[in-house]
């Protein structure tokens, strides 16, 4: 069964492009438009990887990851964080929250696919 990736980003066009790329590569995709929405998607379904933006309305990515790590079913789910900031402060916050993988926006879909494939297989 295909691995499922949760994409969390407030831009619907972004989710669409990344979603198509991941689906083409053989993953199945769940979308969420912010951290709160994403937490709602962590409802017991199998999620193999989370790809989350940092800056989002309602609930930002870091808060979301912290909350996700509290959920027993998802505490070991790997997270790729998308960042536009070179700012180390966000990165160290993310590290504290348990994020290890970073991809800097903007990127071409293959870059994300490559990062994903380092962590999970489709």
């Amino acid at each position: 069964m295909a691995k499922t990736i949760l994409i969390v980003d407030d831009s619907s066009s972004f989710r669409q492009v990344v979603g198509i790329a991941l689906k083409t590569a053989g993953y199945s995709v769940v979308e969420a438009c912010d951290g709160k929405d994403a937490l709602g998607k962590l409802d017991g379904r199998k999620i193999n990887l989370i790809v989350s933006d940092v800056n989002m309305p309602v609930m930002d990515g870091i808060t979301f990851v912290k909350a996700a790590k509290q959920l027993p079913a998802y505490r070991f789910t790997p997270v790729i964080m998308l960042t536009t900031e070179a700012g180390e402060s966000k990165k160290s916050e993310g590290k504290a929250a348990g994020v290890r993988a970073w991809v800097v926006k903007p990127f071409q879909p293959p870059v994300l696919l490559d990062a994903v494939s380092k962590l999970i297989l489709p």
């Binding site: 505490r75 790997p78 348990g98 290890r100 494939s117 962590l119 999970i120 297989l121």
Partner: peptide, 17 residues
């Protein structure tokens, strides 16, 4: 490593590329 969501095997597989 595992607690951070990283699977050593996936890196070895990727290395194979």
């Amino acid at each position: 490593v595992l607690r951070n969501g990283m699977d050593p095997l996936s890196f070895l597989r990727y290395l194979g590329k």
